[in-house]
């Protein structure tokens, strides 16, 4: 069976620094993979290279068997790749419903409609409300994002990615900067996602990462140092030394 995501000896070099050093990994269809590692391990850079924000220096990225290494970001989204950002990246000047509408029409031709107002698309509105309900923000649909708290923005961040209807979802520290109770909320939302969606997530919070993931990849200094089930990884002495020792 083809893997959902297959990365082959991917490297990213900045100046003389190898931020990502020949990383290879495969994520199976429907799998939930956590990517962990200390700060500066190259996790976010790897993410950027997979999602098309950055171009890898060498190596290849395959999505459902198709080589997408040099595909622009927007086309990856059409192929079913969705992502969230570590630093909240939502449209602060728009309302929540408008934020979702952008995600909803982004992958089809309606994004080019210029001669009819958005309000002429009741289906978009409905989907937007449903999408907001899924992250518990339905009653704030017409508020500008400016009025949201940081935690609520993280929820919206997730909703945006979900509404491009991804088959593979990349989450870059979905719980970054949240309080424990807010973490719990996001944790539940991610857990409640349909199993057909393949998940790859960077996570610092061990409990979140190990509670959600089927498999865990540990990165250190740009390389993969271990991979396995949460139990295997936790009991790996090398990982304990490098990673858990730091916490």
């Amino acid at each position: 069976m083809t893997a959902a995501v297959a990365i082959d000896s991917l490297a990213k070099v900045f100046g003389g620094l190898r931020a990502v050093d020949r990383v290879s990994l495969e994520v199976a269809l429907g799998e939930r993979r956590a990517l962990i590692g200390p700060n500066g391990a190259g996790k976010t850079t790897l993410f950027h290279c997979i999602t098309g924000r950055m171009q890898p220096s060498s190596g290849s990225v395959k999505l459902f068997g198709d080589d997408i290494t040099y595909l622009p970001e927007h086309q990856r989204t059409k192929l079913g790749m969705g992502r969230t950002f570590q630093i909240t990246n939502v449209f602060t000047d728009l309302s929540l419903a408008e934020n979702l509408a952008l995600a909803i029409v982004g992958t089809d031709r309606r994004k080019w409609v210029w001669n009819r107002p958005l309000s002429a698309f009741p289906a978009v509105r409905e989907q937007a409300l449903a999408g907001l309900e899924a992250v518990g923000l339905k009653d704030r649909a017409d508020d500008p994002v400016k009025l949201l708290s940081y935690g609520e923005r993280r929820q919206l961040e997730l909703a945006l990615a979900l509404n491009t209807h991804p088959k593979v979802l990349f989450l870059d520290e979905p719980c970054a900067g949240l309080s424990p109770s807010e973490r719990q909320r996001i944790f539940k939302m991610i857990r409640a996602l349909p199993r057909e969606i393949t998940l790859v997530m960077i996570e610092h919070d061990m409990d979140v990462a190990l509670g959600l993931a089927d498999r865990v990849t540990v990165m250190n200094r740009g390389r993969v140092m271990a991979e396995g089930t949460p139990d295997e990884v936790q009991s790996n002495p090398e990982v304990r030394d490098v990673y858990f020792g730091h916490v």
Binding site: H74, V90, L94, A101, G106, V113, W114, P117, T164
Partner: peptide, 25 residues
């Protein structure tokens, strides 16, 4: 009509965050 259309909204989206717009397709 133009600025209230999905296209018009997409422009404001780009103004707000181009990187996010790209990742939305």
């Amino acid at each position: 009509i133009l600025i209230r259309s999905p296209f018009g909204l997409s422009l404001r989206g780009i103004k707000g965050s181009e990187s996010r717009m790209q990742s939305l397709g």
